[in-house]
């Protein structure tokens, strides 16, 4: 029985990897088809860009980029070019929708993989790095889907699916380990609370980092457009929301993740008290959880500090994510310490 579930789990994880790959390809097509597309309604956009730098508000672009394709094409008075744009837009958008649909499918398949892994092991599937990776991917995917539903952030599709494919690929090829029981230190309900909150926070941090990357790209594009107003505004990036709106999305995800991360670290400390007899012992894992916490605290502060908003704050967020990744990869693989069972 255990064997069956373990096999089903493995197959589900493979399948999810393939589905995410297809989703990524769809998103690549979405970007590629938008390559020749000009930004919708160049006029108002330009107007919006310039005051955006002074008033600090990207509302007008938001409204504009939110305009439907039909409006965008319609305003061109049925120019041939506009018609062609409309076609490409329609196709690009269709691939985007396909990509998102596949992502949802991949999420479901991966969820089956994670759950079956747990059933096969007769415990929560959080005993080693392979299991952490597939659970982490599930969390990233969940965070992304929630955000698409809530804030319509499908423009993150390519980055998110790309991330999922890479991490799941590594998990399946490099990190895979057959089922093993948990060491006694992990026999605690705190495992569930601590790891699940850390995983969800990690998923949100990941999506936040990807949004920050996109923000930096879009911001650079807008800067360039202001410096060289004559350059054609084509490509998928021009169809994403304005930089400020992306920044706000990134902030929201981080603002969600940070208290959860605080909670996860706190649960870890309480658990450490039960398992090892101290809250906090500066074990390498604890050190880096603390560093991540401090880095994201710095991000939240940077957003409120003159001269640090925008680009600098985004870099701080990416720095925080780098410390998070190092804690997960570096410390698990090279570190010793009490969390060493978390490795391979």
């Amino acid at each position: 029985m255990t064997e069956t579930y373990a096999h089903l789990s493995n197959n589900a994880v493979y399948s999810a990897t393939i589905v995410f790959t297809l989703a990524m390809i769809a998103h690549v097509a979405e970007w590629a088809l938008a390559r020749q597309l000009t930004a919708p309604l160049a006029g108002p956009l330009q107007r919006a860009l310039v005051p955006a730098r002074t008033a600090g508000s990207g509302v007008v672009d938001g409204a504009v980029t939110g305009t439907s394709a039909a409006d965008a094409a319609g305003s061109g008075d049925a120019h041939a070019a506009a018609a062609r744009d409309g076609d490409d837009l329609e196709r690009s958008d269709r691939f985007g929708r396909i990509g998102f649909g596949l992502t949802v499918l991949g999420f479901l398949v991966l969820a089956v993989g994670v759950v079956f892994r747990g059933i096969a092991a007769q415990r929560v599937p959080w005993g080693n790095m392979y299991e952490f990776s597939i659970t982490g991917c599930l969390a990233v995917c969940a965070a992304y889907i929630v955000m698409v539903r809530k804030y319509d952030t499908r423009w993150l599709g390519l980055l998110v699916t790309g991330f999922l494919v890479i991490v799941l690929g590594i998990a399946v090829i490099v990190l895979y380990r057959p089922l093993t029981p948990l060491v006694p230190a992990l026999h605690s309900y705190w495992l569930m609370i601590h790891v699940s909150s850390a995983a969800v926070a990690g998923g949100a941090y990941t999506v936040g980092a990807l949004a920050s990357v996109l923000y930096l790209l879009r911001r650079r594009l807008e800067r360039k457009a202001v410096e060289h107003p004559d350059l054609p505004r084509t490509g998928f990036l021009w169809r994403t929301p304005p930089a400020e709106a992306i920044d706000r999305v990134a902030y929201r995800v981080h603002a969600f993740a940070f208290p959860l991360w605080t909670f996860a670290v706190m649960c870890g400390a309480i658990w450490a008290q039960y398992a090892w007899g101290r809250f906090w012992g500066w074990d390498p894992k604890e050190v880096w959880a603390f560093i991540t916490w401090v880095a994201y605290a710095a991000y939240l502060h940077a957003r409120a500090t003159a001269g640090w908003q925008g680009r600098s704050a985004a870099y701080v967020a990416l720095l925080g994510y780098a410390t998070f990744l190092f804690n997960f990869v570096g410390i698990n693989l090279f570190g010793s310490g009490l969390h060493s069972y978390a490795g391979m």
Partner: peptide
């Protein structure tokens, strides 16, 4: 529509 409902995001 790439991202129609931005009124949540955009103040």
């Amino acid at each position: 529509m790439p991202h129609p409902s931005d009124q949540e995001v955009v103040p």
